[in-house]
Every structure is written in C-alpha cells, then in structure tokens.
Design a protein around this nucleic acid. Structure first.
Lengths: 122, 122
DNA sequence: AAACCATATCGATGAATGTCAATATATAAA
DNA sequence: TTTATATATTGACATTCATCGATATGGTTT
C-alpha cells in the first residue's frame, strides 16, 4: 500500500471545494487504508479499549488473521499516520492518532449552505 | 468494485465501539469507493457547483479520463449510494446524496470521552 | 426511417495489494 | 550465550480493480 504525504491538517475541501490532483491522491490514499475490513476492525478494537491502546499480540486471535498479516495492516495504518506505536519490552502498543481522524471527519462534513455567488449562470 | 449492502443509517461505531465482520465489510466498501483520486475529484467537483449537480458530459475534460472510465466511476459511486442520478434528455445529471456522507461523517467522529468503566484492569 | 450525440457495457491488460509460510530481527530471561 | 517470545520482513500467489478501445444502448432531431 503506497502512502503519500499526509493531507494538510486543516480543511481539505472534499465537499466544499475542488480538489486538485495532489490533494485527491493524498486523501484517496487515506481512504484506501480505511477500505479494508480488517483494518477497520483493528481501529474499532483499539477505540473500544478503556486504556485507548492495544497490544499487537491481542489482535491476531479476535481477527482470525495470521501474525504477518496483522503486522502488515498495522504497518500500513502506522505509515498512514492513523496509529501511534510504542514499544514496551517485547510488546508493541498501538493507539489512535485523533488529529488524523479529525481531518477525515472535517473532510466529510457537508457545508450547511454554499455561499451561492449571486446565482451566476454558467 | 464490489458494493455490499448500505451501512445502517445511524452511528456505525468505528471509533466508539467494536465492529463485527459484516459491519466492517460494509464500511470498508464505502471507503474503498472513496479511495480513488478520480472519484474524490468528481465528488468535489459536484460539490463545488452552485447548482449542486453536474452533467456527466462535463467531467471527462477536467479529469482527463476516457468516457468509459468516467462512466465506470460514476456507476461505482451511484451503486454505493453516494450519488443521485437524473436523466434529462440525452444528458444525465449527478448530485451528492448528503445522508450518505452524513453517515461517514458520524462514523469518523471521535468520542469526546469514553465512559471509562470504573478503571477496571485487564 | 437515418444521423447524431451522450452514456453504458464488454473484454482485455497491467498494476496494486491482501494473504500466508518461512524466515529474520528484537527484546527479555535464564 | 542460549532459549523463548513478540514483531517485522521476504517472497510468492491470487484477487481486485482502474483503465481504455471497441461496441452497444438510449434519446433527440431531422
């Protein structure tokens, strides 16, 4: 999974303006990361922890995937900036990067009403 | 692009609860649709119109894609429920389906603070 | 009817990528 | 150092899918 540079931190205008090639590619790259059931399950599993984090070793069993596959998905999300990673001894703990989801949340916000420029005709 | 059944209309808990297999697959299917630069550009192009809609014939030039490819992308988004389609004579006009983006917007909302269940230890 | 345009479908091709077995690396403990 | 466990990487394979040329379908006009 090819990960391009992070989307600019504020207000990429998916639903409120035009995207150029580069912006579209960056945004699409993040959505592609989310376009995998296993990864969404990992994310929701992390979010469901009261500690806000999860050890990689706790994932393979509930998801029914091999260890290499899990490792792969975690890497993809880490490189996409969606996950934070912290090693403690032999184990590695992952948590969400809220700012990253904030961006996506904003991107999908539908503008209440577009400032309709004097009803200009095409 | 395989499109599964639409995500339940309210509050799929990506970031606030656990997703089961089916929910994850449905959500991932939508994100997969958004994981394509050309499709994001189409969406933002529609959103940028003061009329809120765009004719399919207006897309091929600004995006630099062939007509069959454009038609393909529109179909994918239409079948994912992201676009509404209306024929007027020879032309077909597309507009966003706001409810659909509302769902995604909510899905990516980060819970302000999870009700921390009495700090139970694992 | 025919001619013309917009859109959709078909078929083929190449690229991206999810998956796992095997193996490597890293850390901790004995 | 050796052993054990957790995580990462490699290599191979199968599947998905974006893309386009060719062609079909649908609507409009003459």
């Amino acid at each position: 999974m090819k990960i391009s540079k992070p989307v600019s931190s504020c207000c990429v205008p998916l639903l409120s303006g035009q995207l150029n090639h580069q912006e579209a590619e960056q945004l699409a790259a993040i959505f592609r990361v989310l376009g995998e059931p296993a990864r969404l399950q990992i994310l929701s599993l992390i979010a469901a922890q009261s500690t806000g984090e999860v050890c990689a070793c706790e994932l393979t069993e509930p998801l029914g995937l091999s260890q290499p596959t899990l490792s792969h998905h975690l890497k993809v999300m880490y490189e996409a900036g969606l996950l934070h990673k912290e090693r403690r001894g032999t184990w590695i703990y992952y948590r969400l990067v809220p700012e990253r989801f904030e961006v996506l949340h904003r991107v999908l916000a539908i503008p209440t009403r577009r400032p309709d420029a004097v009803h200009s005709s095409p």
